[in-house]
Amino acid sequence: MAHWTDLDTPHGPVRAWRAEPGGPSRGAVIVLQEIFGANSHIRAVTERFAAAGFIALAPALYDPIAPGIELDYDEAGTQRGGALRNELGFDRAVDIVSTAADELHREGLRVGAVGFCWGGSVAFLANTRLGLPAVSYYGARTLPFLDEPLRAPMMFHFGQGDSSIPAEAVEQHRQKQPRATIHVYPNVGHAFNRDVDNHVYDPATAELAWRRTLDFLEESLR
């Protein structure tokens, strides 16, 4: 079962898509969007976490500046999403994650974060600034923050062919975050988990990364 709920954040009300497992939960996961908003794809990923046994919550991070927006995976959507990402900024995004985590903690749940693209970098900051176990899928904007120490287990997924995160950037992750688990997948690029976009989706890689993510969450939230 999934539905919209409201978060009372320091930056005003923010909707969040909440999905519940059919039985006892294995913990809670905050799902962090790409630059395209908390769209149908992100909501489907949230529901997939619920099907795997987690209470899952996907905040619509753009709500403080563009309530309800969902963007297409085209040039116009990419341009608009990039502008909204820059306008919102990381600090407000982390504040929203903090509100979501506090709400879930009040329910007695252990909480982790999983983010995609821009949300992958937000997930990293949820670890270093909020202490949440986190998984980052191809977060290309993490480099300026790599000197921030981890406060919980951390996993990164990268595509070897991702031009936004070249090999030298991945190596910086290894050097600056030696305690993190880093997976690099050959023959795939950016957004390999985005199963609504055949230009980037790679089913085999997405499934392997998904299994690793679930194992990580099960261990980290136990």
Rank of each mutant, 00 (worst) to 15 (best):
P133W: 01
E219S: 12
D63G: 09
P186A: 14
G53W: 05
L150A: 14
A93L: 05
F192K: 08
N127H: 04
A38L: 10
I182S: 02
Q160F: 03
E207H: 13
G119C: 07
E171Y: 00
A52L: 10
P67K: 11
L214P: 10
R26G: 00
A169W: 02
T99R: 10
Q79F: 07
E87P: 05
R92L: 13
T9A: 09
R129T: 01
T205C: 05
L61H: 03
G189C: 11
H183I: 01
I65A: 13
D91N: 09
G139T: 05
G120T: 00
G37Y: 05
D91G: 04
T181V: 15
R106E: 14
R129P: 03
D8S: 15
A44N: 07
N39L: 09
Y137T: 11
Y137K: 12
Q79K: 14
S98L: 02
T213C: 09
F192L: 10
P64E: 13
N187F: 09
V200D: 07
R151Y: 00
A209Q: 06
L143T: 14
A38Q: 11
L217Q: 09
R43L: 08
E218W: 01
L221D: 05
R222D: 09
D95M: 08
Y73V: 00
V184T: 15
D147S: 09
A206F: 04
W118M: 11
F145D: 05
T99F: 03
E75W: 03
G159P: 03
G37S: 08
I35Q: 09
S25E: 13
H199Y: 00
E218C: 11
R92N: 07
K176L: 14
R222W: 02
N39Q: 10
P10E: 10
F54Y: 15
P186E: 12
M154T: 06
A126C: 04
G131I: 01
L150H: 07
I65F: 08
L32Q: 07
P186V: 08
V135H: 02
V184I: 12
Q172E: 15
D6R: 15
A38V: 00
A50F: 05
L214R: 10
F216Q: 08
E87C: 08
G112Y: 01
A180H: 06
A16Y: 03
E103H: 05
L88M: 11
E218Y: 04
R129Y: 01
P166D: 06
D197W: 07
R141N: 10
S136W: 00
R212Q: 13
G139Y: 05
L32M: 09
N127Q: 06
R80P: 00
H183N: 11
L214Y: 06
N198Q: 10
A134M: 02
T181E: 15
G77R: 07
W17Q: 01
G119R: 06
A52W: 03
R80S: 11
F156R: 06
A58E: 01
F54G: 02
A167C: 03
V14D: 07
H173K: 14
A66G: 04
L125Q: 04
R174Y: 01
L130S: 02
Q175P: 00
H173Y: 13
W4D: 14
L104D: 02
R179V: 04
H105P: 00
F49N: 09
I55M: 08
S98A: 15
D91M: 03
I30Q: 00
Q172I: 01
A100S: 13
F156Y: 15
D215Q: 13
S136V: 03
L217P: 07
F156S: 04
S164T: 14
E70K: 10
G112Q: 06
M1T: 13
I35L: 12
A52T: 09
L104A: 02
